[in-house]
Amino acid sequence: MLLHKNDNPKAKTPKPTHESQNNMKPNKLILLLAFLILSSLHSETSYAETVYVDDNQNLVWIRTGPTKEYRVLPPIPPHTKLEVIQVNDETGFTQVRDVTGREFWIENQFLTRNETSKHLLASALQKIKAMEDQHVEKVASLERQITDLTPMKTINEELQGKVAKLENELEQINQKSQLYKRGFYSEMFFAGAIVIIGGMFLGWVFSKLGGKRRGNGWS
């Protein structure tokens, strides 16, 4: 099999030209900038935590730098909430930021990651307030439901009044029916008595008449 010139395995790879080398430099710069940006973001977020000034302290002095040789700033009270920027383990200082955005350095021994008693109390009071608000809302909801049921209560009372009236009328009808029954039974009794007495009277009359007829026949 014949080999062409381009198929020669020993052919040398062409060296990159000066123009291609210039095109590679911007790509390296872009990669380097991206790496630096990611590194800076990682270094900033790695210390994104909250700390508090220990409540066992009275006033804690703060400084402009990570050693005691730096200028002293006005002290801060205990329970102060701070955000960590960076930690210097060699000098034992931490750079922090308060809620106003002011940045300064403070000794690590005065800081704690646990919430102080003041913050715990504030958190507990906030939870109690939330529970009270929920309770008030539930009471208001029940009052609204009772208000909505008021017309139904009125209708129920009216129906109960009508039922009581009908029951009273029914009782009166029953009483009249009992009176009618008693009158009917009395009339029937008197009618029966009259029939019996009439029958006895007729029997007596017929007996008299029969006796006279027999007497007349014998004579």
Rank of each mutant, 00 (worst) to 15 (best):
Arg71Asp: 13
Arg71His: 00
Arg71Trp: 08
Leu73Ser: 04
Pro74Gln: 00
Pro74Tyr: 00
Pro75His: 03
Pro77Met: 01
Pro78Lys: 06
Thr80Ile: 00
Val84Ala: 05
Gln86Ser: 15
Gln86Glu: 13
Gln86His: 08
Asp89His: 09
Asp89Phe: 01
Gly92Asn: 05
Phe93Tyr: 14
Thr94Asp: 00
Val96Lys: 00
Val99Cys: 11
Gly101His: 06
Phe104Leu: 03
Trp105His: 13
Trp105Val: 02
Trp105Arg: 13
Gln109Asp: 14
Gln109Ser: 15
Phe110Glu: 02
Leu111Ala: 04
Thr112Phe: 00
Thr112Trp: 10
Asn114Ala: 09
Glu115Phe: 15
Glu115Arg: 14
Thr116Lys: 09
Thr116Trp: 09
His119Ser: 07
Leu120Asp: 11
Leu120Glu: 14
Leu121Gly: 08
Ser123Met: 10
Ala124Gly: 02
Leu125Ser: 15
Leu125Thr: 08
Gln126Asn: 15
Gln126Lys: 13
Ile128Ser: 14
Ala130Cys: 05
Met131Asn: 07
Glu132Ile: 03
Glu132Asn: 15
Asp133Gln: 15
Gln134Trp: 09
Gln134Cys: 08
Gln134Lys: 12
Gln134Glu: 06
His135Leu: 10
Val136Thr: 02
Glu137His: 11
Glu137Ile: 03
Lys138Tyr: 07
Ala140Trp: 01
Ser141Val: 09
Leu142Asn: 01
Leu142Gly: 10
Leu142Phe: 13
Leu142Gln: 06
Glu143Met: 15
Glu143Gln: 14
Thr150Leu: 04
Pro151Trp: 03
Met152Ser: 05
Ile155Arg: 13
Ile155Val: 06
Asn156Val: 02
Glu157Val: 07
Glu157Thr: 05
Glu157Arg: 13
Glu158Met: 11
Glu158Arg: 15
Leu159Gly: 04
Gln160Pro: 08
Lys162Glu: 03
Val163Ala: 02
Val163Gly: 05
Val163Arg: 09
Val163Gln: 11
Ala164Gly: 05
Lys165Asp: 14
Lys165Gly: 03
Leu166His: 15
Glu167Ala: 08
Glu167Leu: 05
Asn168His: 12
Asn168Arg: 11
Leu170Gln: 12
Leu170Asn: 15
Leu170Thr: 04
Glu171Asn: 12
Gln172Tyr: 02
